[in-house]
Nucleic acid binder design. Structure first.
Lengths: 326, 326
DNA sequence: TTGAAAGCGCTAACAC
DNA sequence: GTGTTAGCGCTTTCAA
């Protein structure tokens, strides 16, 4: 690994001169020297050692995105957007899986070790404990989900608009008796969303479902036991996809017998063939804006919480049908 | 952030003494001092700055696991195992998503910047270009998949045993006319696996399928157009799960009309209710062993390629039935 | 125009 | 037993 010193030696100038030239600092050097320095740097394939620079500058040039699980099907979108923004802004983005046994451990560890300049929480808003630890260490962070603490720096999706659209869409198709499936564990946001949906179209049934386990089966059972809603709205594209599939396996036709609509969008939405209808949110953009906001926070120390206002969009994949007048 | 100096000042000793004591170096200090140093360190919530230590020691204490996509449903297992091992060995593991436009860019970047001591490739074996770049920079790496270059350091699963078991299982159930679905893009390993399967049970049809897109649909079409095999074996649990679901949506019964078996295991296997039968491989252990091997490589500079020999296991979730004698 | 020097936080060889 | 010192690679005043 070539260092500044190697270049300096080769060119015959001082190391500090090389540093300044390579940084493009406002310094007057003879043009020939400047050329020569760049030439040699190129030739030696010089790359600044960010660890050393970080030590000197008191910052690392890296940010981390802790995720509770690498198995979440929404993350690819968010992560993709975040990486793009990080690349563009000269930061390295590391995805850090939280440990199941000690969710805070790894995060506090890398923060305390000075490995990252900031954090961006992809899913759960950080716990109060984590927030106070982070504040104590003066490490800025952005959350992509509102926690109960509305003061925390947050780049949120406009879920109000999203769920309003979801309800409106079903309503427009003539659905009046619908079930809403919440994703558990429920969060501050999810309760809010449920409320937004209900404001437009009051669900007659409210069910709950986790991503894995028996959740989907139990929803199907409850569907069977109920006085059949004409549509099932869910707060998740994963649950929606599994639901379509599970219902069909039971011989219940989608959308002929019941319509199903999800929330968010991801490749998983295409698994029930030819796919499940969802409300597509601007997750990718959210990831991008989140990183941009974090960098702003790192640089300026301030950031006004914001909402990604890109309008939600219905992706019609044919699992919702109009209710026929009887 | 408390530094060594803060502690030294508070206790009234030299910074180097603190360093040595805290490291547990074989040094003789008066017991009272030792106690006092630990006490103050604790009180100040001291955590060594790994960036500084890294600079001094010429290593960062971090390793990265580049993944081509965070949407792969097998990774959670591997990553989980890798993280455990990394924690245990005192390393931080970062997941690094490769950029779609410049797959090598981010990897070379963090390596050149001295951010990581080694790499562990979760999926694709590194390209020849990457291998030579890595060797040039003397950055050790482990691949979890054999590339065409058998010399590269690799911690592989015993896929020979896995596919032999898959074939054997179907054979034992009486299947003779089977289709095998390869995952594309095919790799060195996948060809090998296909061979292992065929050695035991020659497939009458060999089809191909990618994870997303139209792959599954086209396999179903080909199934319909063919002189119906009694079983479909796949090299992927994702494809198997989607296949079960897609077939059932078309009214083809699984396993009554056709058996389906996957490969690997992941939560996704439980999506077709109540799940798809697969050959479970020791992915988690592979992640663990991979990190252990990498650390060995970092420390000792040598490592003999190895195969994770934990025997594969059939997880029967009811998508394979015995062929009835006609 | 260029260089010398200090220092980020840490470790390790060596001195007392 | 404990302190001094040098230095990892880099940036940045300040001096020449």
């Amino acid at each position: 690994m070539a260092t500044l010193r190697d270049i300096a030696k080769a060119v015959g100038v001082d190391i500090s001169t090389v540093s300044k030239v390579l940084q493009g600092a406002p310094i007057r050097v003879s043009e020939s020297r400047r050329q020569e320095i760049f030439r040699v740097a190129e030739q030696l394939n010089y790359r600044p050692n960010m660890v050393a620079r970080g030590l000197r500058l008191g910052k690392s040039g890296a940010i981390a995105m802790p995720v509770p699980s690498t198995a979440n099907y929404l993350y690819p979108e968010i992560i993709g957007g975040a990486e793009d923004a990080a690349d563009r802004l000269g930061y390295v983005l590391f995805v850090l899986k939280q440990s199941a046994v000690d969710p805070l451990g790894r995060i506090l560890n890398i923060v305390a070790q000075g490995r990252v300049d900031g954090l961006i929480f992809a899913d759960d808003a950080p716990s109060a404990e984590l927030v106070s630890a982070l504040n104590g260490r003066r490490v800025p962070f952005i959350s992509l989900n509102k926690g109960s603490d509305l003061d925390s720096h947050c780049v949120a999706l406009d879920d109000q608009a999203g769920f309003a659209l979801q309800a409106e869409y079903l309503e427009r198709l003539g659905h009046r008796r619908v079930a809403f499936v919440k994703v558990i564990p429920t969060s501050f946001t999810s309760e809010l969303c449920m409320g937004t949906f209900a404001a437009r179209l009051e669900p007659e049934w409210v069910w709950e479902c986790d991503f894995f386990g028996e959740g989907v089966l139990s929803v199907i059972e409850r569907y069977g036991a109920s006085d059949a809603p004409t549509a099932i709205a869910t707060a998740s594209v994963v649950v929606a996809a599994r639901l379509v599939q599970g219902l069909r396996e039971k011989g219940i036709r989608v959308p002929e017998d019941v319509s199903v609509i999800g929330y968010h969008d991801s490749p998983i939405a295409q698994w029930p063939l030819p796919g499940v209808t969802t409300v597509k949110m601007a997750s990718r953009e959210q990831g991008m804006r989140g990183v941009e906001a974090l960098c702003e926070l790192i640089a300026k120390g301030t950031f006004a919480g914001e909402v990604v206002s890109t309008p939600p969009e219905i992706i019609d994949r044919g699992t919702c049908a109009a209710v026929l007048p009887c």
